[in-house]
């Protein structure tokens, strides 16, 4: 009892241990494995994304334009400062400022697709989640509405192009009904072409938006609605006083991410209207694509950088709405 409570086994053993102790001690550490496991991602990102990104930005300050004042060969572009950016905001031979035109087109087509899409998706999300209506078959409808989102956009557009062409069935139907004038071309007419692009985007994305909004509604505590109802709020009041305000962050999130996606609109207008050379549906990415095909990397780079800046600003909004959501 008087000695220590810990039984140390006797000394011969201890001397042996001491010898081992003199050797340099290594530590057991898994740190290196973390680096090993994430290495592939970062190496590939560096080579295939980061380097090209930096090259794009670098390019945007060099003149590749064979018709520009400072004429250079393709192999030796010259530093030109912000010339590429300035040129983008100048009128071209047709008297059009291409960057404004394409961004304008993109935004117009996005808005006429996204606004109805948001409204309808909201209505759908509300009636799907309504405990009053208790609709049957919501699973089927959700599945049906989401399907167009997975369809190849270029194929969907090609289909539209054919259905609305001069010999397509929809064209024939419209003509027979007398809704359109003789020799009307859907993809050449500015308004109809824009409407078609917007409509296609609408069809492809409203199901997706519905599902996102439903998740948003379901994440709201059910008891909030119940207590509002017990407090005497009508269905309409619950909708406008509770559901919509609580849903606002998600709606903003969905809208902005949709806008970021919308800015990158390419497949649909490309397939649908590129052959028709419709200037009313030319998007910013189509412009970029054209410059790339001309090997004018400077101008293409400048467009990419502008697009990146717009996206970055919008993304900050997204993160802010997300953070607000967390505060709630």
């Amino acid at each position: 009892m008087q000695s220590t409570q810990i039984n140390i086994e006797n000394s011969s053993n201890i001397e042996g241990l001491n010898e081992v102790e003199n050797k340099p001690k290594k530590k057991l550490s898994y740190t290196k494995w973390g680096y090993i496991f994430i290495a592939s991602f970062f190496v590939i990102y560096l080579i295939f994304t980061l380097v090209p990104q930096l090259l794009t930005i670098y390019d945007s300050f060099f003149d590749y334009d064979p018709f520009s004042g400072i004429l250079v060969t393709d192999a030796h572009p010259e530093f030109c400062g912000f010339l590429n950016y300035q040129r983008l905001f100048q009128e071209n031979a047709l008297g059009v400022i291409e960057i404004y035109q394409t961004i304008g087109n993109t935004l117009i087509m996005w808005i006429i697709g996204a606004i109805p899409q948001m409204v309808i998706a909201l209505i759908l999300a509300l009636i799907f989640t309504s405990t009053r209506l208790k609709l049957k078959g919501t699973g089927f409808f959700k599945t049906a509405f989401y399907m167009p989102n997975l369809i190849m956009a270029s194929a969907f557009s090609a289909l539209f192009l054919m259905l609305f062409s001069q010999i397509g069935p929809i064209y024939t139907l419209f003509k027979d009904m007398g809704w359109i004038p003789e020799h009307f071309d859907f993809v050449v007419n500015k308004t109809s072409a824009r409407l078609m692009v917007a409509f296609l985007n609408f069809i492809m994305w409203f199901g997706n938006t519905t599902i996102l909004l439903m998740a948003g509604i379901q994440s709201i505590d059910e008891s909030i609605f119940e207590s509002a109802r017990i407090d005497g709020a009508s269905t309409r009041r619950v909708l406008f006083d509770m559901t919509l305000p609580l849903l606002k962050p998600i709606v903003v999130y969905v809208l902005i991410t949709s806008m970021i996606g919308g800015l990158q609109m390419f497949d649909v207008p490309q397939v649908l209207t590129n052959k028709a050379k419709n200037s009313g549906t030319r998007t910013i990415i189509m412009l970029l694509n054209d410059y790339l095909n001309m090997k004018n990397y400077g101008r293409a780079g400048a467009i990419s950088v502008i697009l990146f800046i717009i996206t970055a600003v919008l993304s900050i909004f997204v993160f802010k709405t997300i953070n607000k959501k967390e505060d709630r």
Binding site: Y58, D59, Q264, L288, A312
Partner: peptide, 23 residues
């Protein structure tokens, strides 16, 4: 590393396309 990956998630793929195409 995680924050970096989150940050690059929002960069549009077009930003790299010019350089990528060139390379």
């Amino acid at each position: 590393a995680e924050i970096f990956i989150l940050a690059i998630m929002m960069i549009p793929s077009q930003l790299s396309s010019v350089g990528f195409y060139q390379i």
